[in-house]
């Protein structure tokens, strides 16, 4: 039974992927990709990765899909122009042959994977008590491989610096994204008033649950960022100026607190990013609480794009 369901999911996934790649125009391709992202979350559930499924649904499918949909709306007829410079029939045939060859080689590699299966799970389980958290994935992210998580937050900040730097000079320091004008009595404004309180509660719940159960800061940050975007899109509040000092403080707070806790570990526990015995859980909570606003701000601002209006006064 379960294999039948998996097979069905696989077939649908492959069909969607092909459809997305060969679709007639960019809008259809992106629409296909959004559905594909949701289906992918289902794949993660079947692969026993509830945390990954949540991240995939929130970021891989949700935010990425929204970002791509936003871009489709601004292509302004560039599609027809580029269509003429597409790969030649020969190049397409070559691409197909090589893509099939890569797939076949990978499949062969997968089929002859060595036995016994290599896994780090037996190392993770006995090390978990030292971290004080119950969810092994949180343990990996914030104890064993804390550096990766610190770098991940840094990647997001650098990506934001990059996105901002694409601004036209005259808009520097201004507000990102368009100013949404919406009917204050309209249905969207109504939703933007009703939904965020619920969304904030759910976001904080997902965040808090992450220590011991599936969930965590990224999934929570996506929900909170979405609430903020909703309020913006309903025209109830405007995006902040990118030169706003408080905004920038919120962006850098997470990584800086993370590094500070790491240095505390160096001083109190003998190694950078180590947690003093017994303090692991509280310190992990401190890091996560500091990262949450950073992630909310950065995710939402990445969606907003570069500053484009209201430059320096």
């Amino acid at each position: 039974m379960s294999t039948v369901v998996s097979a069905a999911v696989v077939l649908l996934l492959l069909w969607l992927a092909v459809w997305t790649v060969v679709a007639r125009d960019a809008f259809l391709a992106v629409a296909g990709f959004v559905v594909y992202g949701l289906l992918l979350a289902l794949v993660w559930v079947r692969l026993a990765g509830i945390d990954v499924a949540l991240t995939e649904a929130a970021i891989g499918g949700g935010l990425t899909g929204a970002l791509l949909l936003g871009a489709v709306g601004r292509l302004r007829g560039t599609e027809a122009a580029t269509a003429t410079e597409g790969a030649s029939a020969g190049a397409r045939a070559g691409a197909a042959v090589l893509a099939v060859a890569v797939t076949a080689a990978l499949m062969l590699g997968v089929l002859v994977l060595p036995e016994p299966v290599p896994t780090l799970a037996p190392l993770v389980v006995p090390a978990m008590p030292a971290t004080g958290v119950g969810n092994p994935i949180t343990g990996v992210l914030l104890a064993f491989r804390a550096l990766d998580t610190l770098l991940e937050a840094t990647v997001l900040v650098i990506a934001l610096i990059g996105v901002w730097s694409f601004a036209p000079d005259r808009a520097w320091g201004g507000r990102p994204g368009p100013r949404y004008q919406t009917d204050p009595d309209g249905v969207l404004a109504w939703l933007a008033r009703v939904l965020p309180p619920i969304g904030v509660v759910i976001g904080i719940y997902v965040f808090w649950a992450g220590a011991d159960h599936p969930g965590g800061k990224f999934q929570a940050a996506t929900i909170l960022a979405a609430m903020w975007m909703l309020v913006q899109m309903a025209g109830l509040s405007d995006a902040p100026r990118t030169s706003h000092r408080g905004l920038r403080a919120g962006i850098v707070a997470g990584p800086l607190v993370f590094i500070a806790v790491g240095v505390l570990g160096l001083w109190a526990a003998g190694s950078f990013l180590a947690y003093p015995p017994g303090l692991a859980k509280p310190l992990i909570v401190v890091i996560e609480v500091a990262l949450l606003p950073t992630l909310v701000l950065v995710l939402a601002l990445l969606m907003n794009g570069p500053p484009r209006r209201g430059g320096p006064a």
């Binding site: 990765g49 991240t55 970021i59 299966v117 799970a121 991940e152």
Partner: peptide, 26 residues
């Protein structure tokens, strides 16, 4: 495939995947 020690899957790749998904979004 690496499910062992009572865990339904090897948690290390799963944690790395979360990082990788976020990086791909960026």
């Amino acid at each position: 495939r690496g499910a062992a020690a009572g865990l339904p899957a090897d948690p290390v790749p799963q944690a790395l995947l979360i990082t990788a998904i976020v990086v791909a979004f960026a």
